[in-house]
Nucleic acid binder design. Sequence first.
DNA 1: CGGGAACCATG
DNA 2: GCATGGTTCCC
Length: 973
Amino acid sequence: MNQYYDLDKGKNVLFLNDASSTSGYSSNSPTSTTQSLSPAHSPETMALQSDFANLNLPAAGHNSPQQPQNSPYHQLLNGGGGLCLDANSLINPAGIGTATSFGNMYDHQYYVPVGGAPAAQQQFGYQPNGLPAGSSDSKHVPQLRIVEQPVEKFRFRYKSEMHGTHGSLNGANSKRTPKTFPEVTLCNYDGPAVIRCSLFQTNLDSPHSHQLVVRKDERDVCDPHDLHVSKDRGYVAQFINMGIIHTAKKYIFDELFKKKQDRLVFQMNRRELSTRQLQELHQETERETKDMNLNQVRLCFEAFKVEENGSWVPLAPPAFSNPINNRKSAQTGELRIVRLSKPTGGVMGNDELILLVEKVSKKNIRVRFFEEDEDGETVWEAFAKFRESDVHHQYAIVCQTPPYKDKDVDREVGVSIELIRPSDDERSYPPLPFRYKPRDAIVSRKRRRTCSTATTSSSGNSSSNNSLDLPKTLALAAAPVGGGQPNDFSLHAQTISQEFGRDLHLMGLDKCDLVNSESFRKLIDTNSDELLKICHVSMDMGELQADGHGRAESVGRNLTRDYLSAIFKIFDQDRRTPMEISKRRVEDLFTDHALKNDNNDTLLHEVISHKKDNLKLAIKTIQVLNYFQLKELANSALNADGDSALHVACQQDRAHYIRPLMGLGCSPNQQNHTGNTPLHLAVKEERINCVESFLNGMPPVTLDLSLKNDDGLTPLHMAIRQNKYDVAKKLISHDRSSISVANTTDGNNALHMAVLEQSIELLVLILDAQNQNLTDILQARNAAGYTPLELARHKANERVVQLLEKVYPEKGDQTMTWIPRKVKEEIDSSSDESSEAGQLEIKSEDMEIKTEDEDSMELDLSSHHRRSLEEAHDDTQMETPPSNKLQLLLQKKNIYEQLSSLLNEPLGHGPEPQLPKWKHLARGLKLMAFMWLNAEAFLDHILDNGGSVEFEEFARTLQTIDPKAHALLVRDS
DNA sequence: CGGGAACCATG
DNA sequence: GCATGGTTCCC
């Protein structure tokens, strides 16, 4: 009856102290000797005890050989016998916690009954006010003190695992040698005593259902365990060779109830409990069973004096150990990062990072990035982004890095990563290093001189006259400027700048508008001398390339300025020099600058990423390159990271340079060394203006939206993963076919990814946006073999699943043209209060057959989205009514088409052969031809905001370029 | 002993 | 049916 029953196997495991442990507590035994404590189990108990004693206290009053002076307390305690210092002078080596809890218990609950009359001890517990006032002085009162705490983490074994030897519960300071064990000492007491150890819950003053067992003769003896101490033995009790048995869930109640019952019986000093008591105990146990922490226990130490009559009298308040955590549980086990997918990431964050970890629970884990100063003070922390579904089988976490606090750092920053378990604030150890990399654009502006520079300079030395020629050129070019009076220059430039700024302000323009504006055109076209001066003022700063590194500084400081000056000079004097020569000189200067420059940044990169966004400078540079037909040069101008000027523009959020750069010939499909196109960067860094600049009015053929970066993602994938509805919408509107592209990371297409985001809006956007290959998308399987619907069932919530189920065809029906347009209303209502709009009912009358008409692209979403939609389309559909004759004409489709096709033809003569006619036309109209890619774009510009272009002037200019086109225009007017 | 994985119960 | 977490088994 007192065996530990094993219902599974039918075999009985004997737990000698088990149910019969009741008798272990029993205080009603007839004799007064310890031997008679428990008739059934005393032998074991005693044997156990002597086992402890023999092992650990071989000789009374001597230091244990296994504890050689490693603890001063041992000397004190062992040598001193009952002589004990008070709590203040005896520092608990294993932790403060004990002292605190000790104090509390002592103060609030227990009263030490030294010398109390035996009669008064009929009942368990310490009687309040049962002592003379003087003896409450803690110095003279018996106390249990924990000398060695148990280890913090220990593997709890299931009963079925308890054959063979598994490690024992060691002391917190245990090493391979010497080993230590949980150990308590009884102070301020003189006489024989029993010290008992049992397993308790950590948050309740109640026993734990797990078993604290000691291996003895092939048998596991259960708690409580009693040890005898006396003056001879130094009042030290060391509990060795203990294990913790994890009771299976189904037995928790039984075990707990048994333990509580035994304990109560012992306390009450009675053989039986009343039915009422049993009832109460039952209820209490039920309550405790529900929320008992199965992965954390603590040891409870108690001290008793055994009276003549056999009753056990508590001598001191119980002492509780620190918690012992189950090493094997994901809730309390050790946290550890086993591996990172990569040790670095960009300061902007949102980089995918995979952590392989030891068992974690997805609901109870965080990934913390932090930075500490020299003193170990946290100066920054942030948490990685991930969802529960990103925790893969408890062993891997796919997360996105948080942005670093300072996005403008110019060198790598080392931080640390650790796991945090919120439930107990446990951290992984050690923290793993992680390096934040500065944004490319910033690096390239302030790049340190490295080995790549060495190659550069050596090639510079050995190579042609170019570099040797340069000083002369530069000197020439720079001379007039350098010789002038600084004050004049700055004054002058300042005036211009001010006027310029005021114009801007008055017109309420932003930089995008500015590039198209009349006054700006004038400013640039008028006099590059003016410009040059401005340039000098604003560039004489070292900001362009200030990097405080000895030689590098002196060399690099004026590099950009000097080269730009030289090039501008050539441009301005062009009329006197043959075109070809000037062109080559500019070309040489340009390339040579890049070679000399850190990170191979070209002048173009630098002016575009200039900290103060020097618009005049940048546009002028573009203009010059354009003028000299250096399209190839500009297009192939990549820095060491493979970034084109367009990349840089996107990173720096300089949307206003995108069209000019593309006009100049920069390809939007250029991939840098990490496979990112400029559009990737714009999406990644959430440069919505840049995204728009790319997409608006760009012919679909120009942009390849299916290009994947090195992470295997297209811009659309990135937008979805970042849950950026507006960005995704723009991308999809631009080119629907990109929806069906699968990423190379996990084979997910846009719909898969939207499922993972659990975003109804994105899902509807995707489903509604395309009509051709819905089947493809719905049936596409990702790397794990799931279609979007299957994926949703695995990883997404009910609403997502419901939505998708509506879209998938009935069995056997392969035509997939049904689109739940009405879903939008669900969204409208649900996005208001983002919570429960749950019932996604799509009735059949709400569905309509999708047709090929263009407006099916558009989904009438919430007003917010409607707005963004209009904005997205204002480029082709005019917003303001045309005000002049020219615009009215161009609105006619046939005119527009004929005209644009004519104007796209090259003009076979003139100063700049091979240029298409529209460029000549643009120049003739004093417009910046490099702004546009083709005649359509140019005409669109006039339609949109070229109200200032008068019909007469347009016609007149056109006549000189293409009489036929002119005729067309005039005839129709 | 500790790690790994199979197996099982559960929601 | 499946993912998950708890349990058991095995080396």
